[in-house]
Design a protein around this nucleic acid. Structure first.
Lengths: 194, 194
DNA sequence: CTGTTGACTCAACGACTGTAGAGCGAAAAT
DNA sequence: ATTTTCGCTCTACAGTCGTTGAGTCAACAG
């Protein structure tokens, strides 16, 4: 067995990231309240006290764990924005990051998660609304975002049986006319070539 | 001050209902985990131990508080079912019962609430799916239900700014073509008379 | 080699939780 | 009038939680 005398900085960075990863997973699966510092510490193979030492408090741990590498803003045109939204449902852009799942899982019970979710959703609504030409642009945008939210919750968090084993592409396909309708775009008769 | 020597049975029934009402409100606003027996007891102006004595455990209290007078099944035709769903968003049928809000608020973190929500949603999906003539009937139904879920969460639980002060009728109006599209119904060009 | 820093663990505290049992006083039964 | 029933409160227990401070040992600076 070779001994690997790892330097301090990299050790620190590694365990910190290990804790953050464990925290993300726990928060995403159990939500804020049901996730305990001890559970996270155990998953990261670390003493609970170390988690506190590194992150100060459970709340701060949550904040750090859910910080995202910034969401790329929705593209320019309305059609592109809709495609972008639909693509986010599935694997085209990669699976939904656990940080997002953690926020969504906790947003109905943890006030700070709710605030964070509201901020991000309001932002999406504003971006989408700017691309819609309609008196009710913002309302339409909000309903589009709410639709995406509902589908994601039903599929990823609630595990609805009817959505469990359906491919993301198929969902996006069926969702597209609906989103177009919400956006105020004339919806063509669906093709029966399914 | 007249003394009102209330009989035992009515006293019991009254305080029990008072506790259940307090529990519904607390569960709906704070979710299962953040709601404590003591909070419910205080709101019902009763000793915490009484809550246990009446309902056995916090879990059973939740179950009892959340029991609904049974949801009327969705009407016969597809069009009627959609209208029924849209009507449930707003005040036409009355505000969303607190029992439903309590389940929704808790379903992402409390396993039993999740199970209950899944059961009810799966049921709705089945009913709606039966009214849709399409190969993807169940999938379409699931996406319709998910949409309604998302709108309700965004509006009632997350309090999204863009949906906060919008009338239910207006939401239903904009949502209708989208639901029709999901149902696989040919969607006419929207009227610009709004 | 010597002393210092800092990553990490151990043990424990105080607060809060769900929950249980004994007891009080008024309504009901005798 | 006496006894029984039972709605209700008081007090307290055991467990878990977030959080803290002292202590240990290896990596670093001199």
């Amino acid at each position: 067995m070779e001994k690997t005398p790892t330097s301090r900085v990299v050790r620190r960075r590694r365990t910190e990231e290990r804790i953050l990863a464990a925290a993300r997973e726990a928060f995403a699966e159990r939500g804020f309240e049901r996730t305990t510092i001890r559970i996270v510490a155990a998953a990261a193979e670390v003493d609970p006290a170390l988690v506190m030492q590194y992150f100060g408090s459970k709340r701060e741990l949550f904040e750090r764990a859910v910080q995202m590498p910034s969401i790329p803003p929705l593209g320019g045109g309305l059609a592109e924005s809709i495609e972008e939204l639909l693509a986010r449902i599935g694997m085209k852009i990669g699976p939904i990051p656990q940080a997002s799942l953690a926020v969504m899982r906790s947003m109905l019970t943890h006030p700070e998660a709710a605030q964070g979710a509201r901020a991000k959703l309001d932002d999406q609504v504003a971006q989408l609304g700017a691309a819609i030409e309609d008196d009710d642009a913002e309302l339409r945008a909000a309903l589009m975002v709410a639709t995406m939210l509902g589908v994601t919750i039903a599929r990823q968090l609630l595990d609805l049986t009817a959505l469990r084993e359906v491919s993301a592409e198929r969902i996006a396909e069926i969702l597209r006319p609906s989103m177009n309708a919400l956006a105020g775009v004339d919806v063509p008769v669906r093709d029966d070539a399914g």
